[in-house]
Nucleic acid binder design. Structure first.
Lengths: 188, 188
DNA sequence: CTCCTAATAGTTCGGAACGAACGGTGCGAG
DNA sequence: CTCGCACCGTTCGTTCCGAACTATTAGGAG
């Protein structure tokens, strides 16, 4: 019983745990590295503290070794499983934010061409990496592959955008649409 | 002189301040509402604490009213202006993360069709809103419009993805590519 | 078997982010 | 004047984050 606030971090812990129960936070970290961390990084220290927090709230059960590393091994409780199922069944969720540093610089007037070239390289690399992972993902849970497909689509979008920006197409379109819909008179 | 850590929040404060100097944190909040908050929300309390922090570090100057609301009015110092310019001139930056709750649910096996329908509606609304804003943005700084263009491209991508997922196209493609590149034998 | 080293596993800590809630201030309507 | 509401600013408790640190285990050389 508990009135802890469940955050996205909580569901990541529970979701990963569901996939590889029983597990130590360290195990979760290994799994996360292969999967979620690509679009939602959780620092490993949080996996430890969050697991402990959830156990305290009764959503996980914790057993601890008495010797050696004194590892804490976690399992989902029925309550935890129910909370996870409830979250997953609710199709609404707050929209995410991009929070991309380069976009911020662009917003604040950075040189678009220089920025675009640097970003193009990084996004192309990431895109290639995602595509490799997807190819290797074979028989992994379908959810993983669907999510990765979305990640790939986004990376493609990034590449297309920065490319268009580098080529001056973005500015051209902005100029054209500003001319087409003048909010202040453009010719005076 | 200062060894404060400058975070993205710091640059948001300085960047906004550059655009409407001098300003109180409340003024910044108003401007943010029209601009950055669409892709990088900063809670208003942070604008107050971050402004104070930056002033302490010598990047902003602070003058305070002695009566009434005792508002703190900020300006960029030369040092602050230089820090902002330096940040803006550096074309590299860590890649952002999506951190979208719906993607997380998808990852963890939520029903894709139900999820897609809910998400489609939200993203379509947001897309329409962005397009309205862009049309109204007329003579605003070019950086704002470029960044918004990227935001629109991403929203279009979201709409396209959730639509394809709802239609079963995503799963069909995944099945096709899994058959084309079997990592474990698929027919045995 | 013992010592050294590298990889593995877990924790601590301080600063930054977050958002709910609260407390003053100013102003216009009654 | 005084009530109410929008405006403006702050406090607080929790969560997030990552650098740095400690401790355990495995493997190899002597």
């Amino acid at each position: 019983m508990s009135t802890v606030r469940l955050t996205e971090t909580s569901y990541i812990v529970m979701g990963l745990l569901e996939a590889c129960e029983p597990a130590t936070p360290y195990d979760l970290k290994q799994v996360a590295k292969l999967s979620t961390m690509h679009f939602w990084h959780v620092p490993h220290t949080q996996l430890y503290t969050e697991s402990a927090r959830l156990a305290e709230a009764g959503l996980l059960s914790e057993t601890r070794e008495h010797e050696g590393r004194r590892r804490r091994v976690y399992r989902l409780t029925d309550e935890g499983r129910a909370a996870l199922a409830r979250w997953r069944a609710d199709p609404t969720s707050k929209l995410g934010e991009l929070r991309d540093g380069a976009t911020l610089k662009l917003f604040f007037g950075a040189d678009p061409v220089r920025l675009a070239h640097a970003q193009l390289q990084m996004h192309r690399e990431l895109l290639a990496e995602y595509e490799t992972i997807l190819a290797e993902l074979g028989e992994s849970p379908i959810g993983w592959r669907r999510a990765l497909t979305l990640g790939i689509a986004h990376e493609r979008q990034f590449v297309a955008f920065w490319q268009a920006l580098a080529d001056g197409q973005v500015d051209a379109e902005l100029a054209a649409s500003a001319a087409a819909h003048p909010t202040v008179d453009a010719t005076a």
